Simulated scan of single mutants.
Amino acid sequence: MTMAPSTRHPASAGRLWLGMAAYLVPSFPIAFVWHLVLFESQYHSLHIYRADPIIPFGLASMIIQSVIFSWAYPLLFPGQRSSLLKNGLLYGFGAGLLSWSFTTLAVAAKHPMASISDYVFLETAFTFLQFLIVGPLIALAYRNSS
Rank of each mutant, 00 (worst) to 15 (best):
P78V: 03
L46V: 08
M20R: 01
S66L: 04
W17T: 10
P5Q: 13
P136E: 05
H47T: 12
Y43S: 12
S70M: 06
A109C: 10
A108Y: 02
F77K: 03
D118I: 10
L122E: 08
S115C: 06
L90D: 12
Y49T: 05
Q130L: 15
S145M: 06
S83T: 01
A4F: 15
G94V: 13
S41D: 15
L132G: 07
L84K: 08
A11N: 01
F69H: 00
S145I: 00
R50E: 11
R143M: 13
S27F: 03
F32D: 01
A106D: 09
A72L: 11
I63F: 13
Y49R: 07
A141C: 03
A51S: 15
W34G: 13
W34A: 15
W17D: 02
H47C: 13
S12R: 10
A13I: 12
F128N: 02
N144H: 14
V134D: 02
I55R: 02
L84G: 02
F57W: 15
P10F: 06
F77H: 04
V25S: 10
H47S: 13
I64P: 00
L132E: 07
D52R: 12
S117F: 07
Y142A: 00
P56L: 10
A4H: 14
R143P: 11
L129T: 08
N144D: 13
G14T: 15
V107D: 09
L46I: 11
A11H: 01
F131E: 01
P5G: 09
H47L: 13
